[in-house]
Simulated assay, not measured.
Amino acid sequence: MKSIKVGITGGIGSGKSFVSKIFKTLGVPFYDADKEAKRLMNTHPHIREGLMQAFGPQVYDAQGMLNRKWLSEQVFNDSDKLQQLNGIVHPIVIQDAVDWSQRQTFSYSLKEAALLYESGSYKTLDFTILVVAPQELRIARVMARDGVSREDVLARMHKQMTDEEKKKYASFTIVNDGKQPLIPQIYTIHQQLINIHGK
């Protein structure tokens, strides 16, 4: 039987990457969509061509590497340009993840993506896991991690779907509030997915 395709996501500061690491220690094959997107933006010919057409040759530096800071500045406050960027990158990353997941042999594979629901990539998956945490805790985590102001964190949060919206799509929810133990929540989902695969 084919490996089950599972996505994991959560808003900024929810701790989805930390939760993903715990799944990885259980031997679950793992695809980091944000990391793979960065790789593909430098290496995939269709993405390179699309970005140069949309943003001009300065989107890549003299060494042919993506000028990430410059590109971020172009799209940060321009929703049309951000939509254009996502339209170039997301379909190729989604397909890359599908191709990767089809090569996996474990009961299930895990794909972590910040914009799992926003990008529509959840439609290529069998189940999704949403990591949630109280907003104030998320803000404090990001401020400490990135050394940014509360306003900066809130601006980034407003660009993402709310947890309430995401819960409509989630198959499983993990609460990462620093009170409820994480390991039992993760292990319960892990066992459920292995059981589903075994049926």
Rank of each mutant, 00 (worst) to 15 (best):
Y169R: 08
D80A: 14
P134A: 04
E118Q: 14
L130H: 00
V175F: 01
G7N: 08
G15T: 10
S79N: 11
Y187M: 13
Q185G: 07
V19H: 10
E151V: 11
I94Y: 10
R39L: 13
L137K: 12
K69C: 01
A97T: 05
W100K: 04
R103A: 14
A170Y: 00
F172A: 00
I12G: 09
K35R: 13
A155G: 03
G11E: 05
E49H: 14
K111Q: 15
K16M: 09
N86L: 03
R145C: 03
I196R: 13
T124P: 01
Q74I: 06
Q83V: 01
H158G: 01
G11N: 15
W70G: 07
E165K: 12
Q58E: 15
I94Q: 13
I22T: 12
V19T: 08
A33T: 10
K38V: 10
K199Y: 12
A114S: 14
E164P: 04
W70V: 03
K168W: 00
A140T: 08
Q135W: 02
S17M: 07
S119H: 07
P57W: 03
A170L: 04
I88G: 03
K16Q: 10
I174W: 02
R68A: 09
V148L: 07
P57H: 09
S171N: 05
D80Q: 15
H190G: 05
F172M: 02
S79Q: 14
E151W: 01
G87L: 06
R138M: 01
I189P: 05
F76I: 08
G64M: 06
Y31L: 00
S79L: 11
V93I: 14
N77Y: 08
M52I: 14
L137P: 04
A37K: 08
Q104P: 09
Q180D: 02
V93D: 07
L51R: 09
E164Y: 00
P29L: 06
F76W: 14
I196W: 12
I4W: 10
V132F: 05
A33C: 10
M143F: 05
I12K: 08
R141G: 02
K111F: 06
I4F: 10
Q53S: 14
V175C: 05
A114V: 15
A113W: 11
K5W: 08
R103K: 15
L182V: 04
P134G: 06
I194Q: 15
I8L: 12
R150M: 05
W70R: 03
N67W: 02
T25V: 01
D78F: 06
R156H: 06
R156F: 01
K2V: 10
Q102W: 07
S101M: 14
E136C: 02
S101R: 03
F172I: 00
A114E: 11
K167W: 00
P181R: 05
V93L: 09
